[in-house]
Amino acid sequence: MNRAVITDNLGYLLVGAWPDGPVGGLALTLILSGLSGLASAALGLILGIGLAMSAGAARRALVLGLGFFRAIPIVMLIFWSYFLLPILFGVSVPEIGTVVTALALVGGAYLAYGVAAGIESIGRGQWEAGLALGFGRWQVLRTIVLPQALRAMAPSFVNQWTALIKDTSLAYVIGVPELSFVAAQVNNRAMVYPAEIFLFIGAVYGALCLTLDRLAAALAQGARRAPRLSRATPA
């Protein structure tokens, strides 16, 4: 094992060419996953509410659209949005925007089902109680159902973030200098230490994702405990 190939390139692996050039490496991985995590959470929330509240043709169209983003390999989606959208529409999305958009669409499509299931899991009784109090459907959703559903879903948002951190590695295919891409660059320069380099970045991703995994587990426990707590505290 050659440790020098890691220590010599540690700065490049962590922040890329920054501050003499654009941010890259692990820092860019965090930025990409953070942005796409927020975007997919927003998208998943909107689409999930749409899924839970719509019916008939609108719902079928939504299911079809979500199905497309769940069925297409992310690599293909990145190729499409990076190379083909500009040819088709004459709009050029920068690399980072492409990756964030592609990941947010896929992440949002998966989350939407989680959100819809979360909304539907809140018992019929609560809906009826809300409606009986004279609330509108959307009012019940906003004030009664969503706050509970979101608390229960917090772990799945964090899990989605973990998935996104792993998926940002696919930005490699269009040359976005995130962690996997700069690792490939370092590997290509050193040429004879693939084991050291790829095992090292595997460990970095692992540490990052396991930490988030623990966070999700803690949130899940909190969510399970929360209703009991609220019942125990006098109103």
Partner: peptide, 19 residues
């Protein structure tokens, strides 16, 4: 835990190039 928390791309690089 190890397999689920690292990108598949990196795992494939490990299996092909590193192993």
């Amino acid at each position: 835990g190890l397999v689920r928390n690292t990108p598949l791309l990196v795992q494939l690089f490990v299996w092909y190039f590193a192993v």
